[in-house]
């Protein structure tokens, strides 16, 4: 459902994502784990079409920036950006109108009840706490019933009840065949829900781990093995990074010319 192939994203000299590839199938929950600055949010934003990048990203077989892909993609950003002068219900109404949804009211009510927002329908965005805003943000993303949902640090700022509800919702979504991609650096929060895990560090996917192939090992152990090993070899890495950066520059230039040729 979500297919990311060789994505590289640079901010001037900084390589935020370096040749990242990942895949999430329908009904699968994939998590991106990594320390701060690993490039998790950058790849998430690239998938959602908020950033330009080199490489290929498809959603349900469609390039991520096409209308077809946007129709089946839901995104919950790390920081909820609500409209301060719209009520909770109007946020959902706006999404319903913009997405041209029909008979959306029942689903809106269900979502509001599930996240205990039904008594706050007429509260303005500015009157909500950060946790409440995050809940509204989740409701907005799920209203169009997307087939792929992307969560960027979804549990930050939520109260325990909302965390429990969101985790349950993630399970329900996966069971109904939705592909989920969750970025986080809190391993505990996703311990129960994941099927496949991409461990990222310094803009690179260091390892792809499948729950079925884990055996007795804990995800936490694998994560620290990888990230701490990277930290230990930092001094050596920095030399390599210089050469890698040069090769990436060459690569991206080649990709640029390829893209131009495609156009």
């Amino acid at each position: 459902m979500i297919n990311v192939k060789n994505v590289t994203k640079r901010y001037n000299k900084l390589v935020a994502n370096d040749n990242v590839s990942l895949e999430v199938n329908p009904g699968e929950t994939a998590i991106i784990l990594g320390p701060n600055g690993a490039g998790k949010s950058t790849i998430i934003k690239s998938i959602c079409g908020l950033l330009k990048f080199f490489g290929d990203i498809t959603i349900g077989g469609y390039p991520n920036k096409t209308l077809e892909a946007k129709r089946i993609l839901g995104y919950i950003p790390e920081f909820p950006a609500l409209y301060p002068m719209l009520t909770v219900y109007e946020h959902l109404e706006f999404i319903a109108k913009a997405y041209r949804l029909e008979n959306w009211e029942t689903r809106a009510e269900e979502l509001l009840t599930r996240f205990e927002l039904d008594d706050k329908k007429n509260k303005l965005g500015k009157e909500l706490s950060k946790g409440m805003q995050q809940k509204v943000s989740v409701c907005c993303a799920l209203l169009p019933e997307p087939k792929a949902v992307i969560f960027d640090e979804p549990l930050v700022g939520l109260d325990p009840h909302a965390i429990r509800e969101l985790k349950k919702l993630m399970v329900d979504l996966a069971q109904s065949g939705t592909a989920l991609l969750i970025s986080t650096h809190m391993i505990d929060s996703v311990e129960q829900t994941w099927d496949v895990c991409y461990i990222m560090d310094k803009g690179v996917v260091k390892q792809c781990v499948r729950r079925t192939e884990m055996g007795d090992k804990k995800l936490e152990d694998i994560y620290f093995e990888i990230t701490e090993a990277t930290a230990d070899t930092d001094g050596v890495d920095s030399k390599h990074q210089m050469t890698e950066e040069k090769s990436i520059t060459k690569k991206t230039e080649a990709e640029k010319s390829e893209n131009k040729a495609d156009e």
Partner: peptide, 10 residues
């Protein structure tokens, strides 16, 4: 904000 980018319209 992300809304305008995500809405599936021309």
């Amino acid at each position: 904000t992300h809304f305008i980018y995500m809405v599936p319209e021309n």
